[in-house]
Write a protein that binds this DNA or RNA. Sequence first.
DNA 1: AAAGATTTGTCCGTATGTATA
DNA 2: ATATACATACGGACAAATCTT
Lengths: 248, 248
Amino acid sequence: MAKMAVRKMVERQTGVALWRQIADRIRLAISNGDYDATGMVPPEMALAREFGVNRHTVRSALAALAEEGLVRAVQGRGTLIERKERVTYPISRRTRFSQGLGRQVKEIGSKLLDHREVPASHETAAPLGLSPGAPLIELRTVSSGDGRPLSVAVGYFPADRFPKMAEEYARLGSVTKAFAAQGLDDYVRVSTEIVARHADTDELALLKLSPGAIILEAQAVNADLEGRPVEYSRTRFAADRMKLRIET
Amino acid sequence: MAKMAVRKMVERQTGVALWRQIADRIRLAISNGDYDATGMVPPEMALAREFGVNRHTVRSALAALAEEGLVRAVQGRGTLIERKERVTYPISRRTRFSQGLGRQVKEIGSKLLDHREVPASHETAAPLGLSPGAPLIELRTVSSGDGRPLSVAVGYFPADRFPKMAEEYARLGSVTKAFAAQGLDDYVRVSTEIVARHADTDELALLKLSPGAIILEAQAVNADLEGRPVEYSRTRFAADRMKLRIET
DNA sequence: AAAGATTTGTCCGTATGTATA
DNA sequence: ATATACATACGGACAAATCTT
């Protein structure tokens, strides 16, 4: 495979440092499996030629990726790839968080960050079919796969119908089980909206991301089988660790 | 409204210049409608306080947004918001590109960048259910709404079944119509995968984005009513102009 | 086993960009 | 517009670890 350097695939004076642009490109190449043949990143000099930059600039990029735990440099050998998987998260009419990831990661962690009762805002009332001011239970959770944080989510539930949502979630560690404990045996996804944007500082901290990282946000409404909304949630995924699959 | 800055909402020494981080935040706030009350961005000094930076840094950020055509600074008055909409792109079993956007933009432009016949790679053969090496027609297109580029797409079609794909698309300006002209009256979306990542230089140029911008990429397979794949496409949306809605 | 080639690690210095005051 | 501090990027030289011949 003759690797013809197309060259100059990074741009200067744009407010984004070259080393960060290059780190992003290498991270993408790793997750695409471009380096699977050797299990290693190409030598620093080769990358420097490919991107048309100095070797030191490539080193800065690789240092950032090493900091993320994505690669590990070994003197005299090269830079080994430590991790490359992108977890696929399925979205269907019967989307269940834990279930979809079950086969891809050995251990799923769900932690309840906090919870409180809040009045519905315009933003939260509309998708739930309630009037602004109606009592909601707000749950903030962070989920991880094999120890790596994958998503932070905030969920809103009608407080009059599911008064024990927080307690049951804390006890059972699953929205589906918490619903079941309160008499709701089944529910379906009625709508999902997806946007992508830069992470803010909260998200950087919770998901252990490096600045400039991208968030894939899914805003979802779940309803019972009669069509009454039971949950409005905003789940923020670390974009470089996840892929969403839509099953229609 | 008193949006008290709890702390610094931008971070230093991360490879992303402060002015660019701030530009990204303001762009997000605009598209969220945070400034709809006044139709203007807050004064430079207020923004400087909010982000904990010097006023000159905010000015650099606003200059970048003005360059994008998103805002316009008027001496003595403030910085006016010129544009703020995020177009919603619906994804369902019957996804049709032009149709979904029809109500949101007045004028849809679709331009065929180039086309060629290529042998299927491993990447393109698998979703189409073909063997690597099978002849495919590759179409690269860019689409815009009201003059603003929204997406670039590359589509792969089995060349033996749709030999005139490029000509018909060029003539009709729509994949659906090009299919119909070749005897395929109906097709459905069978799978969609979504990832988010940074734009590369090609995408920056084609979509008229500024470096560091985010791409929402949808990898889709369409099939005829017998389930035989007829198209594999990768559509790259400018993330700050689009929202994807999944209808299940 | 020894020598040479390859690859990462570290040090020097210089110029430019970013951010504050 | 000026001055200052630090981050970014480049260029070269050499050391240290590993692999190949």
